[in-house]
């Protein structure tokens, strides 16, 4: 996968890898963050256990028991006199037959071994090709998605009647001196696009939230984190935007202290129409 990711994902590479692994999580999936997998596997333990019917185990055990090979039956005992005759009779033919069989078996084994090697090579090549195709397909889908998203942003920015506003820092906080955001709302109010920069990085349990403040109540439009100082954030949404927006704000929420009020970081209460 390319390192050149769209800038609307302020998520660390390690977290991106974890989310990608979560998307294809299975018993054979390689996940570097083992603690996350063990955490997720605890989820079913919150469910009330169900007792399977007894026939489930009966069928299972019958199936696996039939797959275990029984030990070979012992040959009947041979008396001492029979053994002498048998050995004498066998010794005449035994060696030539055994030698012929051994040679034939050796030849057959060598031939089968060569065939198996050839088959294994073919299987390995096909697996490698399949993996390359799957990886390319996923990359291609990601690029298409990003392109479609960028195209949508461009259409929105150039539409007649789109609304535009600038969110500025609240108060005199020196940490926010460089923070600013611009927002564009689509003419039919069926989408929005936000670009922000200069925000402080978030701790692991904190996030920023984008709000549409209406006459009735504030409505959360998105939440996001940042990992680097002065990182540019781009976000977009395709859901409906309320018609009676009084203002738009970005707040910062520190989750470890849920009782604390969210701090308003950027705010705008005036918009202009483009074109």
């Amino acid at each position: 996968m390319s390192d050149d990711r769209p800038a609307d994902r302020p998520i660390s590479r390690r977290d991106e890898e974890l989310l990608a692994a979560l998307d294809r999580l299975g018993p054979e999936t390689e996940v570097s963050d083992r603690a996350a997998v063990e955490t997720l596997a605890l989820l079913p333990r919150a469910l009330e256990e169900l007792a399977p019917g007894p026939e489930v185990k009966r069928r299972l055990m019958a199936e696996i028991t039939s797959s275990v090979e029984p030990p070979a039956a012992e040959p009947p005992p041979i008396s001492a006199s029979d053994r002498l005759v048998t050995l004498e009779q066998r010794s005449r033919w035994f060696l030539p037959i055994a030698a012929a069989l051994a040679i034939a078996l050796l030849g057959l084994t060598a031939m089968q071994f060569r065939q198996l090697q050839g088959q294994q090579r073919t299987i390995d090549e096909l697996s490698a090709q399949l993996q390359r195709v799957e990886e390319s397909g996923a990359e291609l889908a990601e690029i298409r998605r990003a392109l479609a998203e960028k195209g949508g942003h461009l259409r929105m920015l150039t539409s007649r009647g789109a609304e535009f506003c600038v969110l500025k820092p609240v108060g005199e906080n020196p940490r926010l001196a460089q923070a600013i955001a611009t927002m564009v709302i689509a003419p039919e109010r069926d989408g929005w696009f936000l670009a922000a920069e200069g925000l402080e990085p978030c701790a692991a349990d904190a996030c920023y939230q984008l709000w549409f403040i209406t006459e009735a109540e504030p409505i959360e439009a998105a939440s996001f984190g940042t990992v680097e100082a002065r990182q540019r954030i781009e976000l977009s949404g395709s859901g409906g935007v309320p018609t009676s927006i009084r203002a738009i704000s970005i707040t910062r929420l520190d989750e470890p202290d849920p009782g604390a009020a969210a701090e308003t970081v950027l705010y705008a209460d005036q918009a202009m129409t483009l074109l």
């Binding site: 609307d8 994902r9 302020p10 998520i11 977290d15 974890l18 989310l19 979560l22 603690a35 996350a36 063990e38 955490t39 997720l40 605890l42 692991a204 349990d205 996030c207 998105a222 939440s223 996001f224 984190g225 976000l235 977009s236 949404g237 395709s238 859901g239 989750e255």
Partner: peptide
């Protein structure tokens, strides 16, 4: 109909919180 970035942030926050709370169960 939630932005993809928001879905990712929410998923990561949920995993982090559970991992911290349940760590004793698997450490």
């Amino acid at each position: 109909s939630i932005p993809l970035g928001t879905v990712k942030t929410r998923t990561l926050l949920a995993i982090r919180k559970l991992r911290r709370a349940l760590r004793a169960d698997f450490e």
